[in-house]
Design a protein around this nucleic acid. Sequence first.
DNA 1: TTGCGATCCCTTTTT
DNA 2: GGGATCGCAA
Length: 801
Amino acid sequence: MLQEEINSSSQEESELFGDLTAPQRQAVRTTEGPLLVLAGAGSGKTRVITRRIAYLIRQGVPPWSILAVTFTNKAAAEMRERVLHVLGHDPRQTRGLTVTTFHSLCARLLRRYAEAAGLKPEFSIYDSADQATLAKRVIAELQLSTSNWPPRSVLSAISSAKNDLLDAEEFAARAHDFYSRTVAKIYQGYQKALRLAGAVDFDDLLVLTAKLLKGNEQVRRECNERWRYLLIDEYQDTNHAQFVIASLIAGNGEEGRPPNICVVGDPDQAIYGWRGADIENILEFEKSYPGTNVITLGENFRSTAPILSAADRLIRNNTRRKHKDLFTSRQGGDRVEVTLTRDENHEASLVVDWLKSVKDERDGSPTSLTWREMAVFYRTNSLSRVIEDALRSAGIPYTIARGTAFYDREEVKTAVAYLRLVANASDDVSLGRVVNTPTRGIGATTFRKIEEHALRHGTPVLQAMRNAGQILDVAGRGAAAVGKFVEMIDEWTGSGTFMGASVSATLAELVSRIIRDSGLEAMYRAQAKASGSDADMERLDNLDELVSSARQFEMEFDAMADPASQTHDEDGLARPDDSTPPLLAMLRAYLESIALVADADAVDASQGAVTLMTLHAAKGLEFKAVAIIGLEEGQLPHSRARESIEQLEEERRLCFVGITRAMRRLLMTSSRYRTMRGIPERTIPSRFLDELPREVTVFSDQAEVTGGLEDFIERGEGPGTRFEPEGEFAPRDSKRAKLAWSSSSAKNAAFPVGAIVRHPQFGEGEIVTITAGANARATIRFRGVGTKTLVLEYARLTRVR
DNA sequence: TTGCGATCCCTTTTT
DNA sequence: GGGATCGCAA
């Protein structure tokens, strides 16, 4: 404490600003009023945000009056950690600081102000599977067929309505054609079913919060008063609902001054248009807050010049774009490698070889790369499988950034459904999932009868089950089974009170008890015993893992820091709310944390493994070496995105995001053939490859290079083995372009494409293609002997001319 | 009521 | 190629 007072302000200055550029400093210092920071890729955005928060606190702004919104929980946790670091690891300095995602923030506000929002505080958060289950039921109740009204597409229409803050009634009022009128009906039924189940979907979190803030002055005032400094990261990916929430929380500012709201984003990295994100939000921001300060951060501190130049040239092809110069003062760096492969297996093995070579190349040197510094990106999740297989068989450790993967496991989902039912007795979707898992004699017929009864009376299904014996024509056997089930639930919850001697004391205890008492564990144990398969053993492990995760959560959970269960005194200090049993409060928070995990949350650099993820999940991250696979028309740009210029440009931005993640090495592959739903299809290289500047890329066509000897001899002229540029990718003079690309490889300058060489055995031949790297191979067309592929190092070639 | 096998449909990206 | 769903047999 004393030490801090001794600190001279100049010392603080250099701590906070010493390593910042002028625009970065300005972004940190401009704390008052609306501020828009246009931060180019790799421009030190995170650093600026972190310093800004630290600076505010140093200036005497109470930490609890600062709200920072990030895109993922992971980013939020990291930001909090970094702020703490800058402030010298004194936890008192960040007490009450809120760093969170929009969805978490909303979930917490809705829990805290549940009554005002028209919800019960134990509301469940439905994921897309739950949503589909519910939508299906609603569609069936409306006597519509799910083949004419596929739940997923109806849900996506509902979702975009919600992102524009259109509720079911407003949507219905605007629906004029048959299709949208029907969707409106489903929308209304779906919302009713959600509320009946005491559940909200992801979009509801935003919609209901916006509604709450708009309609309830007291709540709005409380938020305005608490959070005086608002900071929003990845602003280019916020949608209308999020914008409204942000402005409502920011309020009107004090004493006629505009509110202190700072948004940070990069229009070139807007990749969530399909989710309702609107680049226009940035324009809207300046309109809503006249006199907004705008600061542009253009200098890149992440990537080498060739990588940056590739990214810059690519993104220049977007027409609907405000150009922003990307520049670096760094010199040198390896060129971007662009490689054409035969099929996805070939591509995978090539990527694996590349990763290995990148690792070896730098081994022993001070700049040696480790697995954790490498990543593989792809457009669609389905592309990960082949890469995974290749990495596994090569013995390279890898992790996939799929945050939800664990909770998507059948056994984990079932266990979580029990927990949700325990927390929220109205949760019919969860009830439906667990009622007969493991089988306990409550079959489909019995359950349907109960469901119908519940529907008629407008009660939750579990409620109807309590009366099953008397009211329904459920057979005695069924009624007994139902009675036993209800009894089991009551036993866990203390009949809903979460009090009493028989109720678990801790969350982990509750989870493990439910897994045991429900018979889930016994069921999977029996299965594992019967099959003896690893997969079934793994299920048991996963259930154990769930208990561990609950224990972990319990340790980290800080009731005082949970905005959902606290109120604030005048001075902003938290006071715990004691009307909720602690176990229930913790269970709610735990389930919420499970519901809101993001894929990117699973990125864990400490694992020492190569990270695999979609381009979307890669946003905000950086790696020393990056491989992007599947650069083909239909894949990237995706076939579903080719309809409009807007969509195509979003695909280009996606590619841009991928490229700009790479710090030192970048490989982009395109496969000549790709197996789609079991059928190998010929592909066309992505137009984006053609947009990369030749002078910073090394192109290599490995599509002709094959593994086995007989595979490549005399294969040169066969169909599909040659690279023939097509469509957009084909330059006017493809031969010359190819030559230019190939010969740009400095390493193989001795044997450029077109050179005539002599081989001791095969005689004279012409170099057709050549690849880069340590194991460079050349495809050579020999006179009379045919085309062969040879590894340069061993081929004993001499150049003739 | 349960469990297994055949058939159908699919395919973007995610909080 | 694979996951989900449906239908049928025990």
